[in-house]
Amino acid sequence: MLLVSVIGVFQAVARGLGPTSATAAVDNLGLPFQLLVPLAAILVGCFTVSGERASGSLRVLLGMPLSRTEIVVGKLVGGLAALAVGVAAAIGFAILVSLGTFGTVPVRPLVGLGVTTVLFAFAFGGLSIGVSAAAATPKRSIAVVTGGYMTMTFLWEPVVVGIHRAASQVLPSSAVATWVPFLERLNPIEAYADVATILGGASVYPLRITFGLLERDSGASLADHVSGVVAGYLVEPFLIGVLCAWTMVPVLFGMVRLRAVDIS
């Protein structure tokens, strides 16, 4: 699916739907990636630990000298490696399609997008595997992670506005508190778009629904937005840290939960 979407994006750009250049095609690749990578991560991650727990093969593994923590680490390494290979294949394919369509390869945008997409895949991979370690069945893991992805896509803005309302008793106006853009960027989709733009020099837009509840101040730069909470020179590490936190925090939570439960 990733590969097909790569062809689709390059073909669409080449036929003059929007600006016609290889770099513009890379910009647009960010959009299907934001849809397909989370889906791939859910498919890879949600069945890992809870699938083995539901089937009973976890009881075979635990009958051998393997700890529950080691099993989660093994699933994490394997799952993230599979996702990284998938993303690398899609980027490699994009290089070929770009050569075929435009005769050039926009190296920096593609590499920037590729590295960021791997981090994005890890964020959803870690989330899925962590939830899978905490849940008793794959069904429940899928429900939780899909719900989380839907929240990031559709509900993040209302949630941020709600937090602002609860904290300050007013709806955010144009002069929003400095921590509002910060909260927005805790969303991995938002962080992904920002990091891909910074690293690749292309412009990748976040694929999520907003309702205009928060005013988008187009004049302010990303650094202006985030520097209310994080110093300007820390913007990139902060955004990369958001993606890494989505990878690791759910996994640590899942490990702690799995260690506590009875495996029946």
Binding site: G63, M64, P65, S264
Partner: peptide
């Protein structure tokens, strides 16, 4: 000490599954 134990035992659990 489950690891020390599982290094030295063989297990056929109930309700297991293979790959």
């Amino acid at each position: 000490n489950p690891r020390e134990i599982h290094d030295r035992i063989g297990v056929l659990p109930e309700g297991y599954d293979l790959y």
